[in-house]
Design a protein around this nucleic acid. Structure first.
Lengths: 220, 220
DNA sequence: GCCGCTACGATTGTCGACAATCTGCCGCAG
DNA sequence: CTGCGGCAGATTGTCGACAATCGTAGCGGC
């Protein structure tokens, strides 16, 4: 919310926006599994809209890379192979590394505050051994990190990449790090920011990505 | 082309793809100026299609960030202010830096070859003092650089960012670097890759971005 | 004279119907 | 029995028409 009662534009969301967010969430939580074909008629009926707006929303996800289109055949949820997993984390590294640099340069205070809050969510989820909540909190943490950088473009890129990350995790649901380890990795990131230790932070974020992709390696 | 007569999928492009590419190009070359409203009826007529497919194509550009939508009002070409210019180059730095790392790690040979070719195009354009051709060649160079990294996600991000870069240049058409200087900056990049000097390359690419945003600063 | 209300024209948002294309099945010839 | 050709059903692609919303011009009231 805009602080101090500032007048901000009312967030009037168009139908396309709502529907594309809906689809994105469905892909993120795996209720639209990789490889699934999206039948237009059925989906439109389930969403209570006609095919027109639905098709527009789907084109957004195509551009995002979450769907791929085979002309005259249909739209399918992308399936990520191991190379893609690597690629996702590599791209995330590029984005989040720059985000870290920005945060250190111009927004440390607020970042630490918001990240500490996000970290608490992760701690709670870890304590309860709730994998979905942990994924949610993990994603939220990184979203906050990039958001705190104040770069709209990095933020937009990160959003897509985080969805793809979740797809990886869903596909390989078994291998998920020890909750404590995951919490610690994130806590160290917050500490580094709080300490103003940029070099350490950059090393940590790189390690964090390498660890993540490593954990996903032995799977098929 | 796939070498040695390999059988690749025929590049059947859907209408939406063609139209969105068309629009992207129109924005890139400034024939759809920033702030312009895209009247659906008129555009559809000019493209010889109906509003349906056009709207789908436009949603792709919205997701890309090249258009922004005001519900019940219309779609507009984004206008980039100075903060956006900074943001674009910052995001490019993030992407291209990682691309440089990848190129060094696993594709130096091919990269040097393709980049040398791209550099020649830039030299030709510079010799003829053709600003548009120089922009084209500049863009092509960086596209090749990221493409040589072999990372589909970096490549996709870079594509959008390069279009936005062009929008900046179009808006501030007057300030464009000395042709020789521009050529030299790029030649140094190729040399660094050829020499296998990663640290130097990373410094150069960072400088390249800083220089670029600096050149665009004094303008309104 | 200025402000607010109302009616109109224009544009966007949505829908249902039609055309084009693909997939799978069936029949038929070899 | 195998392979080809073609037909039928289903799905995607496209279109034109209708409904909803917005901006504006004009009118009336204060």
């Amino acid at each position: 919310m805009g602080r101090l009662g500032e007048l901000e534009p009312v967030p009037r969301r168009s139908t396309v926006e709502i529907v594309s967010a809906e689809l994105r969430a469905a892909i993120l939580y795996g209720s639209l599994a990789p490889g699934t074909q999206l039948g237009e008629a059925e989906l439109a009926a389930r969403l209570g809209i006609s095919r027109g707006p639905l098709r527009e929303a789907m084109q957004r996800l195509v551009q995002e890379g979450l769907l791929h289109s085979e002309p005259h055949r249909g739209l399918f949820v992308v399936t990520l192979d191991h190379d893609d997993v690597e690629d996702v984390y590599r791209a995330r590294l590029a984005v989040e590394r720059e985000a870290c640099r920005l945060v250190m340069a111009r927004n440390r205070g607020e970042a630490v505050a918001r990240l500490t809050e996000a970290l608490e969510g992760l701690v709670t989820a870890a304590r309860e051994r709730d994998r979905v909540a942990m994924s949610d909190a993990d994603q939220a943490f990184h979203q906050v990190l990039v958001s705190a950088s104040g770069s709209p473009r990095l933020e937009r890129m990160a959003q897509t990449l985080l969805v793809e990350t979740r797809m990886c995790l869903n596909a390989l649901q078994d291998t998920y790090p020890e909750p404590e380890e995951l919490v610690e990795e994130h806590r160290r990131l917050v500490d580094a920011i709080a300490d103003g230790a940029e070099d350490r932070l950059l090393l940590l974020i790189e390690e964090h990505m390498i660890d993540s992709v490593e954990r996903l390696r032995p799977a098929p």
